[in-house]
């Protein structure tokens, strides 16, 4: 009753001041590096998992250590691949604007494919897909800095 009356009063009064709950307006700080670092970590874990040698049969302590290592590598790979995807999605949906799409018509497809590669890297142990993800992020890096009119060279931590 009171709630309805207050709502009706609110409607009749002049429009209230706007308060922004946007994210991109307030900070405007974007950089594909965050996705690159996560993707690099996932690629590194992929390589480490592939390089692991199982211990001899019957060596229980060595097997425990081996399984522990596998579990840790897998957990980090899952986490970092997911983080890479999140960072890419934030960049895609928050930073890029329709005018960028006009200049880069394959922008949506590039991000879509990159996000799908994040899933592949997360689910599989594929050095090929891990590298393809890095290539996709390098392409996004190029587009991103071109939209800012800056020439920032591609680099990796490893």
């Amino acid at each position: 009753m009171l709630e309805t009356a207050l709502a009706a009063l609110n409607q009749r009064l002049s429009k209230p001041t706007e308060a922004s709950a946007h994210c991109d307006g307030p900070c405007g700080v974007y950089d594909p590096s965050s996705a690159r670092i996560a993707a690099e970590a996932a690629a590194s874990m992929t390589k480490k998992i592939l390089a692991l040698q199982p211990p001899a049969a019957g060596d229980a302590p060595a097997w425990a250590a081996y399984l522990n290592t596998v579990a840790r590598y897998v957990a980090i790979k899952e986490e970092q691949a997911h983080l890479a995807k999140e960072e890419l999605l934030v960049l895609w949906t928050d930073y890029f604007k329709p005018q960028h799409l006009a200049a880069y018509p394959d922008l949506h497809d590039t991000f879509w494919q990159a996000a799908k590669l994040c899933s592949s890297v997360k689910v599989e142990v594929s050095a090929v897909h891990a590298q393809e993800l890095m290539d996709a992020i390098e392409k996004i890096h190029g587009i991103f800095w071109a939209t800012k009119g800056r020439d920032i060279g591609w680099y990796t931590a490893s």
Binding site: K15, T17, E18, S20, A21, G25
Partner: peptide, 9 residues
């Protein structure tokens, strides 16, 4: 004071 929320954060 009244404020209206804009955005989804």
């Amino acid at each position: 004071r009244r404020f209206v929320v804009r955005g989804r954060s």
